[in-house]
Simulated assay, not measured.
Amino acid sequence: MKRVFKLGILLGFIFSLCTAAQAAPTACKINGAVTDSISGEAIPFVTIGIENNEGKVLSRIASDALGKFTITASSGQNYRLVVSSVGYGTKYVDISLSENEKNKDLGTIKLTESSELSEVTVVAQKPLIKSDIDKITYDM
């Protein structure tokens, strides 16, 4: 009777390990490079984010000095890659990963320069109360 009980526990443990291994999604490495659309030069330290279908950011990284990046996501799902850098417009790339895909090469992603501002207005307000060591001053 003890042998049957031990065998049942062992088979249950093996079965649970097998189902857990099958249910775990595989990770896919998504890589690419970011360049300027006009000059073709690499843009260093670009912010790369990956979002799910609901727009929730799953991961955010920075590219290297040559504009190259590698980000990891679960296979078998759809994502949106958000590529942004200061002075450039934000670019969105929709990605669809198959079930057993291990690597996805996006190639070169080209960013265009954003338009410059014609005028900037800085608005500041003086504080109403100024606190010094020995006194409090109210500014009318």
Rank of each mutant, 00 (worst) to 15 (best):
D134A: 15
M1L: 14
G67Y: 02
L17R: 08
T108D: 00
K130W: 08
L66E: 13
V93I: 12
V46F: 01
Y88T: 09
V120H: 00
A21P: 08
R3A: 15
S39I: 10
T35A: 03
T26Y: 07
G89Q: 15
T70I: 13
I61A: 01
A23I: 07
I61F: 04
S85C: 07
S118F: 10
R60H: 04
N53G: 15
S75L: 04
A21M: 11
I109V: 05
K2Y: 11
L81V: 04
I133C: 00
K110N: 09
G76L: 07
L58Q: 02
G87W: 03
G12A: 08
N100C: 14
N31M: 12
S115F: 14
G12E: 07
N78D: 13
I95M: 05
D105G: 13
A62L: 06
S98A: 15
L11R: 05
V34D: 04
G8N: 15
F5I: 15
Y92N: 13
F15N: 11
M1S: 10
K110D: 06
I133Y: 10
S39C: 06
Y88P: 05
N78L: 12
F69M: 06
Y79L: 04
P44R: 03
G76A: 06
T72W: 00
L106F: 05
F69L: 07
G107D: 07
I9S: 00
I71V: 09
V82N: 02
D36K: 08
G12S: 09
L11C: 08
F15W: 09
N53A: 14
L58M: 07
R3S: 14
P44Q: 03
E119N: 14
T72P: 01
K130M: 09
Y92P: 12
V34R: 02
G67C: 01
L117E: 11
N100W: 12
D64Y: 07
F45T: 12
E99A: 11
T19V: 06
L7Y: 09
I133M: 10
S37F: 06
R80N: 10
I9A: 08
T112W: 02
N100H: 15
G32N: 04
L111K: 03
P25E: 05
T72C: 00
S74F: 05
I50C: 03
A24K: 06
S75N: 12
R80Y: 11
S85D: 08
P127N: 12
P127Q: 08
M140Q: 12
G67L: 03
I50K: 04
I43G: 04
T137P: 03
A21G: 11
K126I: 14
C28K: 02
T47A: 00
A65T: 15
A65E: 14
P25G: 07
S63P: 06
T112M: 05
E101A: 10
L81M: 04
T72L: 00
T121H: 00
V46C: 03
L111W: 07
S63N: 05
V93F: 06
Y138N: 13
D132V: 13
S114A: 14
N78F: 10
F69H: 02
A24L: 08
F69G: 05
G32A: 03
V57D: 00
G49C: 06
